[in-house]
Design a protein around this nucleic acid. Structure first.
Length: 250
DNA sequence: ACATTAATTATGT
DNA sequence: ACATAATTAATGT
């Protein structure tokens, strides 16, 4: 929401390339975000002065699995999915990251390379800093470390429950759960239900749930007839979350 | 209880 | 017109 205005005003002049640098950055961009919310104006100013702002088209990679973790990111607008690629070239989506969260924070868990690939699910805007500033941020800025460890904790927790799901639950329950998480984390209330806030295909959902797009298509069609969901191309709206919860527990 | 294959249709530029 | 997305049926493990 807050990023949208930012996007509209500053973005128009440079559409040509996938990554472009913005001229000036306003302090209000960071002041309300958890990792920075405890900092005063002056501190945020110096943080911003070290940042580069980048714009990404939809569907491009922010960084790639295995590449040296040279920078870390704060997503200001858009959505990014974190993806791992198997030997056979199949993608498995680990999680989605909404605007307002840090990204590419391999350094925080002691890694020197990125553990996964990050692909933009929408057009996105992010700030980024060279990785050598990480320790400085942790040391100097109050609340930065604790907040980042919170988000890391949350993501580990989510991946954990997803592993359990993949191992124990059947396909129908898995995609039901995936949908529920998506509307919880990135849901936008519209009339008649909650819609996933970014374009998502059957293929995407199948990569989230380790199944095929065909199965996902069949499930969604069936649910649509029961009035559980409503979908157009690349858009999925959940009309009856509770029914999905019930489904996910059978 | 699923995946795979293939054929068909719909939808967005 | 073209590429991408979604549906549907048939067949396989």
């Amino acid at each position: 929401m807050q990023g949208a205005a930012f996007c509209a005003t500053n973005l128009q002049m440079n559409i040509a390339t996938a990554r472009t640098v913005f001229p000036r950055l306003d302090e209000s961009l960071l002041s309300h975000l958890p990792p920075f919310s405890k900092l005063d104006r002056r501190q945020i100013r110096t943080i911003l002065d070290h940042a580069s702002a980048l714009r990404f088209d939809s569907g491009v990679s922010v960084f790639d699995e295995g590449a040296p973790a040279e920078r870390f990111y704060m997503l200001l607008d858009g959505y990014v999915r974190v993806v791992r690629i198997t030997q056979t070239g199949e993608q498995v989506t680990a999680l989605h990251i909404p605007a307002g969260q840090l990204l590419g924070i391999a350094r925080a868990i002691g890694r020197t390379t990125y553990p996964a690939t990050a692909i933009t699910a929408t057009e996105s805007i992010a700030l980024s800093w060279p990785i050598h500033l990480w320790d400085q941020f942790v040391a100097e800025y109050d609340g930065f470390a604790t907040e980042t460890y919170k988000t890391i904790g949350n993501r580990m927790g989510e991946m954990n429950t997803r592993i359990v799901e993949l191992a124990t639950q059947q396909v129908e329950q898995r995609v039901a759960n995936a949908l529920l998480r998506l509307i919880n984390q990135t849901g936008r209330k519209v009339d008649g239900g909650i819609e996933i806030d970014f374009p998502i295909t059957r293929q995407d959902l199948s990569e989230l749930t380790a199944t095929t797009l065909h199965t996902v298509s069949r499930l969604l069609s069936a649910w649509e007839k029961q009035g559980l969901v409503q979908s157009k191309r690349k858009r999925i709206m959940v009309c009856d979350p509770h029914a999905l919860v019930v489904l996910s527990q059978t």
